[in-house]
């Protein structure tokens, strides 16, 4: 398989998962109950596992099919490619994750709301990809869809409780929904190189999310401002800090094995 744009497509999906795992990893030992620390660690591990499969696949896409479009060419230091080269030796301009995933986490409402908004997109995405005519991508999707179904379930479970809990939790949950909502539009923007058009996932996503928000007695924000650019390597200021931390040790020892 070396469809034009496949490399970028795999990076987009893989970077969403990797950056999500990195943010969840920052949250260790900070949950409201120790039981929840374990749940969020499981979710981080699932997202990290998906990222590794997708980046490993991207690393094997033939060189001739690598585009130079996104944020400039890959740095020479990133070759030969493997999952770690792609995770640790690309700069933020070469990352293709959606901005939603890179925003710094706020309180627990922010953590579970972001997970709801992302997983509600990943569930129909991987359901559809599991039937793609690219067998490797289909196999990754078949595995990942079971995991993200659980992430969606877990996030929805919490958003319902926070929205319909106390006045304080309702306020915090609504604030998180309002803050994150604009960043969801980017998930459905055109994405070349993949077998499905993200726009076709929107109806599913909308149905899932609005149902949870309604049960949670939370208001669906009006659509308006729709920040984007992550798929083209134009990120928020937050991503380069995230990468500086994530990549610091790896980059300090060029050529080392770990």
């Amino acid at each position: 398989m070396s469809r034009p744009g496949l490399f970028d497509y795999l990076l987009a999906l893989g970077d969403d998962a990797l950056v999500t795992a990195q943010r969840l990893g920052e949250w260790y030992a900070s949950s409201p109950a120790m039981e929840e620390d374990i749940a969020l660690a499981n979710i981080a591990l699932d997202q990290l596992g998906a990222a590794r499969l997708l980046l490993s696949y991207a690393a094997e896409v033939p060189d001739t099919a690598l585009p130079a479009r996104t944020g400039g060419p890959l740095p020479v230091a990133a070759r030969p490619l493997d999952e770690d080269a792609l995770a640790y030796r690309r700069d933020d301009r070469q990352f293709r994750n959606a901005l939603l995933t890179e925003l710094p986490h706020g309180d627990f409402a922010h953590v579970v709301t972001r997970l709801l908004l992302l997983a509600a997109y990943q569930v129909p995405l991987y359901d559809r990809l599991a039937a793609a005519d690219d067998p490797r991508l289909a196999a990754i999707a078949a595995k990942t869809r079971k995991e993200v179904a659980y992430h969606l379930d877990h996030a929805a479970t919490w958003v319902r409780r926070l929205g319909d809990g106390t006045a304080e939790s309702h306020g915090r949950a609504q604030a998180a929904v309002d803050a994150l909502w604009p960043y969801t539009h980017e998930l459905f923007a055109p994405l070349a190189g993949g077998p499905i058009d993200p726009a076709t996932l929107r109806a599913d996503w909308e149905r899932t999310v609005t149902a949870v928000l309604a049960e949670a007695t939370l208001a669906r924000p009006a659509d308006g401002w729709a920040p984007g650019g992550g798929r083209d390597g134009l990120h928020t200021e937050h991503l380069s800090y995230l990468l500086a931390e994530m990549q610091s040790l790896h980059r300090a020892h060029p050529g080392a094995r770990w």
Binding site: A44, M246, L249
Partner: peptide
């Protein structure tokens, strides 16, 4: 957050968990 490879990151997450 700084584990030097993705595999080490996964292992460490699982361990702390």
């Amino acid at each position: 957050s700084r584990a030097p490879s993705l595999q080490r990151k996964a292992i460490l997450l699982a361990k702390v968990q």
